[in-house]
Write a protein that binds this DNA or RNA. Structure first.
Lengths: 209, 209
DNA sequence: TGACTTGCACCGACCGGTTGGTATGTTTTC
DNA sequence: GAAAACATACCAACCGGTCGGTGCAAGTCA
């Protein structure tokens, strides 16, 4: 359980393959990425690949799971948890996500979202791993959202539904950025999401706490 | 210019290929769809394919363009244009989009959005065609949004930005539906979009017209 | 009218390269 | 010294794309 590895340069071949998969899936997509591509990017031979993964599909599922495992501590350590007010924490999360959107789509887009779009109908295994990654991350927002809802008397929506909606907007923003070859439109959409949550919670908060 | 063709069964090979591409791209994705797959689905031989399209990439770009051409008249004839009030027309559009989300993702998802996610980095041609399809559709909403903004005194956002945001939410909703293998989560996200627009326009309308 | 030409739409066998995957051998680690 | 962690060589299937050819409807000239 304990991650006592020196997680800097000398990773295992398995981890290097997974990390290479992140980059290749985000830029070329899963189907357009060959096993040889993955091996070359990871500096590994084909024999090593099939030693660690029984098939390319298995790597895809492992990549989605590993994506969740890698991003979870990053979000857990992010500064948006600092504010005392739960609503401010939610808004800080959205601001944090907006800050992450810079550079090329291959740098800020979501591995799980990209992956599931390609294989949802052909690989139930990968699809399930992507669902776990996306919904698992959304679930980390529910407590703050629920607390903010209780404090502001918001009842029209559920915390789970709003948490999933934030992920929908982010995923959609990534697609817009890819289509327009411009990160600004993605940040614009996230700004709309922020405005929605602000309006949603201020509409009911006239009575105050 | 005049479409005097009997547009029922006997389509041209080119159109059958484009229609087959819609179905295959939405279910398997573009890269996972082979030229032989397209030919088989369209009931056409490989010779016919390369007679009408110089390459598979050219078909991808043509599919995005044709997708816009096919959906545009469908949206133009849809009943959401009926209300006299521009804000009601915008909300009716969103309700209309929510109604379209039923069945499997392969039935309601967007060809251009799926396509651009796979090839935005590898095919500038297809990417541009998808951008035109998505932004072109968003542009059809701008007039109603701008009219509603003027009527309700909304100034925080631009009509173009809000129009694009509606597309971002829809695209993101499709991804969520694919990940969860459930159309309901997509409709939920569209409901949040509707609530956002309602809140956005009622917040400033205290002064009336 | 009828033989001849022309050009578009379409056919399907074929090609070289790439694909995911395997079989077997070698090195490293405990 | 055994097992895990690689490396190398190889394969059959499949991929996008090519190419010589066919059917056929519309000129066209006598």
């Amino acid at each position: 359980m304990a991650e006592s590895k020196p997680l800097s340069k000398p990773q295992s071949a398995r981890e290097r393959l997974l990390l290479a998969a992140f980059g290749l899936i985000r830029s070329k997509g899963f189907n357009a990425t060959s096993v040889d591509d993955l091996c070359a990017a990871a500096g590994v031979t084909k024999g090593a690949f099939f030693h660690h993964f029984p098939s390319k599909e298995a790597l895809g599922a492992a990549a989605a799971t590993h994506w969740a495992a890698v991003t979870a501590p990053m979000f857990a350590a992010a500064p948006y948890h600092a504010p005392a007010d739960p609503l401010e924490r939610v808004l800080a999360y959205i601001d944090f996500r907006a800050e992450l959107i810079s550079g090329t789509p291959a740098e800020f887009s979501c591995v799980a979202g990209t992956l599931v779009q390609e294989v949802f109908a052909t690989s139930p295994t990968i699809r399930a791993a992507c669902e776990a990654a996306i919904c698992g991350h959304a679930a980390t927002l529910e407590a703050d959202i629920a607390a903010a809802m209780a404090e502001h008397g918001v009842r029209d929506v559920t915390a789970a539904s709003l948490a999933l909606h934030t992920q929908a907007v982010l995923q959609g923003a990534f697609i817009l950025a890819k289509a327009n070859d411009d990160a600004a439109v993605a940040r614009d959409s996230v700004a709309h999401l922020r405005r929605y949550i602000t309006l949603l919670f201020q509409a009911k908060s006239s009575g105050g706490s």
